[in-house]
């Protein structure tokens, strides 16, 4: 019995052992690193400039006369001035920025403005290294031009700023990329880490479960052997 338990534990672990080590080490990294830190939430400051409502000289009613199909309307401070930010159905849901002081449309965020926005929000101690354009797609699959602003800190902190809205939509640093790889190794999906239900993980989990159960049996046999001996 004990020999069978030992032999199966040994052979199953020869097959799954490396993945056990990877599960343990990647899991350890993921539980040790605060998930909000990994998401880069600490890369930008939480406090923001307040927006005195009396500053609004171009009213919502006036805005609606020009953009009757405006939706998701919000009022924010962008580059030190209050702006209306909204989508318009007729403009293929593109995002508009209109000054709430003058009512003038604001052009898309330039590289210079993006570095101003990023530097103002950034909490780290690195210097701004580069501002590069990037075209990505949003959740609806629409093209979304971005500015990629990189800082010179040890984690290569990078902020992604949406050109249409001036919003910081993504925070990245090396810990995030490392976490992403830990996750892929943990769920054994090496291409994009999006599929937990992959057959490789299934095979290793089942084999791993048997490997662990044989180990548990071995442990029980050894511990009970002890107690039998000490009571006799």
């Amino acid at each position: 019995m004990i020999k069978t338990a030992r032999t199966s534990h040994k052979w199953l672990m020869r097959f799954t052992g490396l993945q056990f080590i990877l599960w343990a080490l990647t899991g350890l990294y993921m539980v040790c690193m605060d998930i909000h830190f990994i998401h880069g939430e600490s890369l930008t400051r939480a406090e923001a400039q307040t927006l005195p409502l009396s500053d609004i000289r171009f009213s919502l009613a006036e805005l609606l006369q020009v953009y009757p199909d405006a939706s998701n309307i919000e009022l924010v401070t962008l580059l030190n001035q209050p702006v209306y930010r909204f989508r318009s159905a007729s403009g293929q849901r593109r995002i508009h920025l209109i000054s709430a002081r003058s009512g003038l449309p604001q052009s898309e965020i330039t590289a210079n403005q993006a570095s101003t926005i990023a530097t103002a929000a950034y909490t780290g101690n690195g210097e701004l290294v580069s501002v590069n354009p990037l075209i990505s797609r949003d959740a609806r699959g629409q093209l979304r031009p971005l500015w990629v602003v990189t800082f010179s800190d040890a984690a290569s902190s990078t902020l992604y700023i949406e050109q249409q809205s001036g919003r910081i939509i993504r925070h990245r640093h090396n810990y995030w990329y490392l976490f992403d790889w830990m996750w892929r190794l943990h769920i054994m999906d090496y291409d994009d880490g999006e599929n937990v239900a992959n057959p490789l993980l299934l095979i290793l989990s089942v084999a791993g479960l048997f490997a662990a159960l044989s180990g548990a049996l071995l442990l029980i046999l050894r511990l009970t052997a002890h107690s039998v001996r000490s009571t006799s």
Binding site: T50, L51, L53, I56, S59, A61, E74
Partner: peptide, 26 residues
């Protein structure tokens, strides 16, 4: 939830009795 905003008589935002916020949304 959403309906058509034009035509609704809106209370001016700058007359709201509220401390200055960080952002406002309709």
């Amino acid at each position: 939830h959403e309906a058509y905003l034009p035509g609704i008589d809106l209370f001016p935002l700058n007359q709201l009795q509220a401390p200055a916020p960080i952002a406002a949304k309709v």
